[in-house]
Simulated assay, not measured.
Amino acid sequence: MTNNPLSLGHCPTCNREISQAWKLIEYERADGDIGVFAECPTCDEVIKPQENKNKGD
């Protein structure tokens, strides 16, 4: 998801990087991939962290 192994990705609302410390639940999707829900400390909402996009993508 990201270059930082301690990061889950970023908040889709405020773009804040979400660290592992904010993970609420990890689950296996039907396709076998792992999904994550986390709390955004800025928005104070439960979110699905999004992949950080590389500049130039």
Rank of each mutant, 00 (worst) to 15 (best):
Met1Ile: 15
Met1Gly: 15
Thr2Val: 12
Thr2Pro: 01
Thr2Asn: 10
Thr2Trp: 03
Asn3Lys: 13
Asn3Glu: 13
Asn4Ile: 14
Pro5Thr: 13
Leu6Arg: 14
Leu6Asp: 14
Leu6Ser: 13
Leu6Ile: 14
Leu6His: 13
Leu6Lys: 14
Leu8Ala: 08
Gly9Pro: 01
Gly9Thr: 00
Gly9Ser: 02
His10Ile: 13
His10Tyr: 11
Cys11Ile: 14
Cys11Tyr: 04
Pro12His: 02
Pro12Ala: 01
Thr13Ile: 13
Cys14Met: 12
Cys14Thr: 11
Asn15Val: 14
Asn15Gly: 13
Arg16Asp: 10
Glu17Asn: 15
Ile18Asn: 02
Ser19Met: 15
Ser19Gly: 15
Ser19Val: 13
Gln20Pro: 00
Ala21Pro: 00
Ala21Ser: 12
Ala21Ile: 11
Ala21Trp: 06
Ala21Val: 11
Trp22Asp: 04
Trp22Tyr: 07
Leu24Ala: 10
Leu24Met: 10
Ile25Asn: 07
Ile25Cys: 08
Glu26Cys: 05
Glu26Ala: 06
Glu26Met: 05
Tyr27Ala: 05
Glu28His: 04
Glu28Asn: 06
Glu28Phe: 04
Glu28Ser: 05
Arg29Leu: 07
Arg29Ala: 06
Ala30Trp: 07
Asp31Tyr: 08
Asp31Phe: 12
Asp31His: 10
Gly32His: 04
Asp33Phe: 00
Asp33Cys: 02
Ile34Lys: 06
Ile34Thr: 08
Ile34Tyr: 02
Gly35Val: 07
Val36Arg: 05
Val36Ala: 02
Phe37Lys: 13
Phe37Ile: 14
Ala38Gly: 04
Glu39Met: 12
Glu39Ala: 11
Glu39Arg: 12
Cys40Lys: 08
Thr42Arg: 12
Thr42Tyr: 10
Thr42Trp: 09
Thr42Ile: 10
Cys43Leu: 09
Cys43Lys: 09
Asp44Ala: 14
Asp44Val: 14
Glu45Val: 06
Val46Ile: 12
Lys48Pro: 00
Lys48Ser: 07
Lys48Val: 12
Lys48Arg: 08
Pro49Lys: 04
Pro49Thr: 04
Gln50Leu: 04
Gln50Asp: 07
Gln50Ile: 03
Glu51Thr: 08
Glu51Met: 08
Glu51Asp: 08
Asn52Lys: 04
Lys53Trp: 00
Lys53Met: 02
Lys55Leu: 05
Lys55Ser: 04
Asp57Tyr: 03
